[in-house]
Design a protein around this nucleic acid. Structure first.
Lengths: 198, 198
DNA sequence: TGCGCTTTTTACCAAATGGTAAATGCTTTG
DNA sequence: CAAAGCATTTACCATTTGGTAAAAAGCGCA
């Protein structure tokens, strides 16, 4: 069982959810009391293909990537998430079914996490929570689609430019090979593009 | 003001929403009473960039495409929707703000439509409707991302194969140029690919 | 049927990207 | 510091895709 998170980390979390609905102190305390803390070392998994997701998490420190293996056995990174965002294979977590993708720590990470049981208790206790949860999920899905979809119609150079717009600074925190995978190009092409940009 | 839709078209709509929540006859009747019917000729717009979306619609007949203009002035198709699905620039419709994309009829279309006023009245009257609405929207977003995101990491041939998996039969209902745009390749490349597939 | 319009196919060459392999650079650790 | 291991860059050539242009095919309409 994870420890309790520290005060400072909780604040960012509360600020995040207050964007999506008004909750009073009693309600936020209830939520915080349900949360645990989970630390991941670089390369460790938050969730794995073939397993049922154990937690929904809020990333207080670090970067994770979402990836799957295509039919050629290559890992395809389809999303990055930075600190102060939710991290979850939410459909599979909610239904408690086996996932088909990995969520992996790109750096050492720290997350506030909720088990299925605690997450359900929050939903059943806090009036209006399910609406907040829906807004958060909708927001995450929209962000994901707005970032990934435009890549389809751009060439490699513009894809890299979009990556830098969508994830400022992230270029220095994750390996080049994962960025190339996210952009749907080879690592060599991306390396070549960077040279030409300079 | 649009006419009322015909009985047979309403059934598919009711069946669709009943997938996402239990509503009794009185409730579905209330919803149906708010709906109008909108017919579009091929190439006409359901919603336009620069305008506030007037309706959320349920497509009972036909195919539409979602597209925007990139900075080179080229139309980029990012989604197709076939009959028996909702059609809406939902974020902009809900907030009643100016859209930045077009929703265009690929064929003659027939839709059941709801104005913002009527849509809000449904939400304020039917207990549990907002939850149903959220589930529907979540479902649409997930479908959109599951279809578009994998294209990024595939070559032109595999993109075309994915299109045919995701939209069986649609290849015969929309112009080749729009499919190519959706896949992020040129029309000439797609034509070449089709020849090699045969 | 035949004309005019649009869509789709072909062809050709240029440019971009992929695949293989090797060299370089960076980090960790003994 | 040196060695080992991993990440990134470079180089070279093959393959794919793009851009331009023209031909062919399909379609609506007089």
């Amino acid at each position: 069982m994870p420890d309790k998170p520290e005060i400072c980390l909780m604040e960012a979390f509360i600020n995040y959810i207050l964007q999506f609905g008004n909750l009073n102190q009693q309600q936020t305390d209830f939520i915080l009391n349900k949360s645990g803390i989970l630390k991941l070392k670089k390369d460790e998994y938050f969730s794995e293909a073939g397993k049922i997701p154990r937690y929904v998490g809020f990333l207080t420190e670090g970067v994770v990537r979402f990836c799957y293996y295509n039919n050629k056995g290559e890992a395809v990174t389809h999303s990055f998430v930075e600190e102060n965002n939710f991290v979850s294979d939410q459909q599979r977590f909610e239904a408690q079914i086996i996932s088909s993708e990995y969520i992996q720590a790109e750096t050492d990470c720290e997350l506030m996490v909720f088990s299925k049981k605690d997450w359900d208790e929050i939903g059943n206790t806090i009036v209006g929570w399910k609406e907040v949860e829906n807004l958060i999920l909708k927001n995450c899905l929209l962000k994901a689609i707005e970032r990934r979809s435009p890549l389809v119609s751009e060439d490699a150079t513009n894809r890299y430019a979009l990556f830098n717009q969508h994830f400022p600074g992230l270029v220095n925190r994750v390996p080049l090979s994962h960025i190339a995978s996210y952009l749907g190009i080879t690592q060599q092409s991306l390396s070549r593009i960077r040279r030409n940009v300079r």
